[in-house]
Computed example of a mutant assay.
Amino acid sequence: MTVPDAPGAPDTTDTADATATPAVQLLTTAHVRDLLGLTGVRPTKTLGQNFVTDPGTVRRIVRVAGVQPGDVVVEVGPGLGSLTLGLLEAGAHVVAVEIDPPLAEKLPGTVAAHAPEVADRLTVVRSDAMDVTELPAPGGRPATRLVANLPYNVAVPVLLTMLERFDHLAEVLVMVQAEVADRIAAPSGSKTYGIPSVKAAWYAQASRAGSVGRNVFWPTPNVDSALVRLVRRDPPAGEATREETFAVIDAAFAQRRKTLRAALAGWAGSPVRAEEVLRAAGVDPTLRGERLEVTDFAAIAAAGRG
């Protein structure tokens, strides 16, 4: 069951650990429609609510994510529980972060009905993912994976926030809008390379992990979806902090058509100072931001400290 909200902390439902995986009944379109009727929830664009209704797609996501029995997995935006049930079927303990109160309240009951023998592996955190500063650690084990169907309108900030706050998340597989996936995984020099690409690269190596058709969702979205995999790695070596480096990234891409000398003039104090810093960092001032790697931005931030 779900316990009441505690002052200053998200609501959680604590459960025991297990790794055996009996049969789990995944959700279909009929289940999704029935559950929406029971919760009284109407899918909204504001929360980016499109629910996966194809069991095959759910199992594919779980398989591509590499979820193993005993893993502790964070799921942001579980909704009605389509992916949650798939993760439980794979033997994981799921920490599900849900912002919508009716959905958060209903999820434990849905899991109990569709997967009664593994329902004790679910922990529900009733909160906006952007507000979560601590995650439950079932059995004292922190989550090592994030697997989620992220709401399209907040996918990038949620992803970057989770990577920043929870360094124990070693691997991530998220389903996002296809063009967002392209931006996150884009290599330097490409047309889609930008702020999400570089900031994600501070934390992890990102890559596209497949496409997902529109017909597996209800209601059917107006955009295509894709999977993005991120594997945690050490941030760039050097003296610059994440905050300092991100400030340079933001300035460099604020006006994409400008050279770095011009784009970083405001950040550095003047075009002349920007050129001095860029040369000290070993970066050509006539380049544009999309030509640089995250290590270059870190070097610029470090050189600009003086």
Results as ranks from 00 to 15, higher is better:
T44Q: 06
D167F: 08
E239Y: 00
L87D: 10
P236N: 04
V212N: 03
V154S: 04
T28K: 04
H114S: 05
L146F: 08
R305K: 09
M130S: 05
A65G: 07
R33N: 10
R208H: 14
A92P: 10
P22E: 06
T53C: 15
D71I: 05
G140T: 02
L159Y: 13
G81I: 03
Q49C: 03
A170S: 02
R279N: 04
H114E: 02
A9L: 14
T57H: 11
D11T: 14
E134I: 04
P10C: 09
G48M: 08
V248D: 02
F297E: 06
P22A: 07
W267E: 14
F297G: 12
L287V: 09
H168P: 13
V73R: 15
D167A: 12
A9G: 01
V32F: 02
A303K: 00
A303Q: 06
L163Y: 15
P108D: 13
D284R: 02
V32N: 08
D128P: 03
D11I: 13
G37P: 14
G269R: 09
A20M: 08
A96E: 07
V147F: 13
V95E: 06
R183P: 02
G91M: 03
H168I: 06
E134C: 01
A251E: 03
R126H: 14
V62Y: 12
E75G: 12
T286N: 09
R33D: 13
R256H: 12
E171Y: 10
A299Q: 08
R59A: 08
N215L: 09
V147A: 11
D17H: 07
P196T: 11
V212C: 01
L260N: 05
L83C: 01
A252R: 00
V32M: 07
V111E: 01
V111S: 03
E243F: 05
L163P: 03
A200G: 05
A206P: 09
A240W: 08
L80I: 06
W218C: 05
L88C: 05
S197W: 08
E89C: 04
V64H: 02
T44A: 15
V228S: 05
E239M: 03
F166A: 03
F51P: 03
D167I: 07
D234I: 13
L88M: 01
V156K: 10
H31I: 03
T44P: 13
V76W: 04
G304L: 06
L38R: 15
A186T: 11
R273T: 11
P43W: 05
V172Y: 06
A252G: 15
L80K: 02
E75S: 02
R305W: 04
P116W: 14
V198M: 14
L230M: 07
A298T: 09
M162W: 09
V228W: 06
T39P: 08
A186C: 06
D100V: 07
R261E: 15
F297W: 12
T161S: 15
R273A: 12
L135K: 01
H114T: 00
I184M: 10
P136S: 01
A268H: 00
